[in-house]
Simulated scan of single mutants.
Amino acid sequence: MLRWTLTFLVIAIIAAVFGFTGIAAGAAEIAKIIFYIFLVFFVISLITSSFRRVD
């Protein structure tokens, strides 16, 4: 998921440099959403892995 986040972030930066502000804003928003989804999955995996090690 982080690869997709970085891909959309690079697309947003390149689009912003060339003046495509609408595309840049859309790509940045997608990157932000994917990053937040990644964070949620990461926290869930940390919590569930800590429960498995107790056994």
Rank of each mutant, 00 (worst) to 15 (best):
K32A: 13
D55Q: 13
F20M: 04
Y36G: 04
I44W: 09
F8V: 02
T48Y: 13
S49N: 09
R52D: 07
I13R: 10
L2N: 15
A16K: 05
R53H: 08
I44S: 12
R53Y: 08
A16V: 04
T48V: 13
T5A: 15
I34E: 00
R53W: 10
F41G: 07
F38K: 07
A28Y: 02
V17P: 01
R53L: 12
L2W: 11
A28E: 00
F41L: 15
I13A: 07
R53I: 07
G22N: 14
F51A: 13
S50F: 10
G22F: 15
G26N: 01
S45H: 11
V43T: 12
V17G: 05
A25L: 15
A12R: 00
T5V: 14
A27C: 15
T48W: 09
T21Q: 15
F41D: 05
F35G: 01
V40G: 03
L6Q: 09
D55P: 10
W4P: 05
S49L: 14
L9D: 03
V54L: 14
I44L: 15
V40E: 02
R53E: 10
F20H: 04
S50N: 08
T21N: 11
R3S: 07
A27L: 03
S50E: 12
L2H: 10
F41E: 05
I33G: 05
I47Y: 08
A15P: 01
F35N: 02
A31C: 01
I23A: 06
F35S: 03
G19M: 00
E29H: 07
D55A: 15
F51K: 15
F41T: 06
T7Q: 11
I37D: 04
R3M: 10
W4N: 13
Y36A: 12
E29K: 10
T48F: 14
L46E: 06
V40A: 09
F20W: 06
S49K: 12
S50Y: 11
A24L: 02
V40R: 06
I33M: 12
A24M: 02
I23R: 02
V10S: 08
V54G: 06
V40P: 01
I11A: 07
F42T: 08
G26E: 00
F41S: 07
S50Q: 08
G19S: 00
R52Y: 14
F8E: 00
V43F: 12
A16I: 05
M1H: 06
F8N: 00
